[in-house]
């Protein structure tokens, strides 16, 4: 077993665009669930809208990369409003089911051959990278140390992603220490009480849904930046993976989503190397493919254990548990 390469891959993946995209998506989910108490199970829909908005704007309409990102943001805002109008007045568990259904509707429409001209249906989109790469200020070459040695283009998408994460963190930090954030946390605890104090609960929930949704869409963009947009990626299980990352770090904390995303993908990459290798060595009674899939069983178990035994996550305060209700 090659421990060196497994460890190398793990550390490298902790700084991958996918990890960075998960940071943004989990941060968005923290706004939804951790601060506003909204059970959004449709994060995959926001991520899909971000990624498709970006790719279609470039491929079909020839937008520059930054305008394409704005399209993604606008798309997420519109989706949040469309989703919020009917659902924000519903009870929590209904909201969960509706959001997961809405995200599936989005995915099915992107995957459908009806819009093939723009979405390329099941095959997804690729080849939209030129515009973003042409804006790369980093000189040609390969930089970095150890596992984090990347080409100029690879650094560019990572650094840009981290820049968005920093912006997102700043926004969430500012908002959550303001009276606005106080109202939001109040809604999380008991929206009727907040309503009785003269706050427009619906408006605050909508604003939270939009902010978290935009963060999720940007996460989708960052993941898609260096790769491709494939509809099958945006299954409900993607939402649940983001949830796992969020709950791992701590839902109602600022850095919980960041830590959660890094740990989630670190562990996933580590297991992706370790488990097949163990199977090949004969230490696991299964094929190496099956062993690779075994990590998703562990994700499910981890999600269960977290919720049952440490709902506040790694960074959360025991008293400020996420699921008091």
């Amino acid at each position: 077993m090659n421990w060196g390469s497994i460890l190398d891959n793990t550390l490298s993946f902790m700084l991958s665009p996918e990890t960075i995209g998960f940071m943004l998506a989990a941060l968005g989910l923290a706004v939804h669930f951790g601060y506003a108490g909204l059970l959004n199970f449709g994060m995959a829909g926001f991520m899909a809208i971000g990624a498709y908005g970006y790719a279609i704007s470039i491929l079909s309409f020839g937008f520059p990369w930054w305008a394409a990102m704005l399209v993604s943001i606008v798309g997420a805002v519109i989706f949040a409003i469309l989703l919020g109008i009917p659902t924000l007045k519903l009870r929590g568990d209904y909201l969960a089911i509706v959001t997961i259904a809405a995200a599936e509707i989005v995915r099915l429409l992107f995957q459908s051959r009806v819009f093939d001209e723009w979405t390329n249906s099941a095959d997804g989109l690729g080849g939209y990278h030129d515009s973003f790469r042409s804006a790369n200020p980093i000189p040609e070459g390969t930089f970095g140390i150890g596992p984090w040695e990347f080409t100029s283009d690879q650094w560019w998408s990572r650094l840009f992603g981290l820049f968005l994460v920093a912006l997102g963190l700043l926004l969430v930090w500012l908002l959550m220490r303001s009276p606005w954030g106080r109202v939001l946390k109040g809604i999380r605890e008991d929206e009727d009480a907040v309503r009785s104090l003269g706050k427009n609960v619906y408006l605050y929930k909508m604003q939270a849904l939009i902010i978290g949704g935009v963060l999720g869409a940007l996460g989708g963009v960052v993941i898609a930046l260096p790769s491709a947009v494939i509809p099958q990626y945006y299954l409900p299980s993607l939402t649940f993976f983001v949830w796992t990352a969020l709950l791992l770090g701590g839902a109602a904390t600022l850095f919980g989503p960041i830590l959660g995303a890094v740990l989630y993908w670190g562990v996933m990459a580590f297991l992706a190397g370790l488990l097949p290798a163990m199977a090949n060595e004969g230490w696991l009674p299964m094929s190496s493919t099956a062993a690779g899939n075994f990590r998703f069983v562990l994700v499910g178990l981890a999600l269960m254990l977290l919720v049952a035994f440490r709902p506040q996550g790694l960074l959360g305060n025991k008293k400020e548990m996420t699921f008091v209700k």
Partner: peptide, 14 residues
């Protein structure tokens, strides 16, 4: 829509 050579396809699960 050719996929960029060497680009990784994100996939949550195999």
């Amino acid at each position: 829509a050719p996929r960029a050579s060497g680009a990784s396809t994100p996939a949550p699960g195999p």
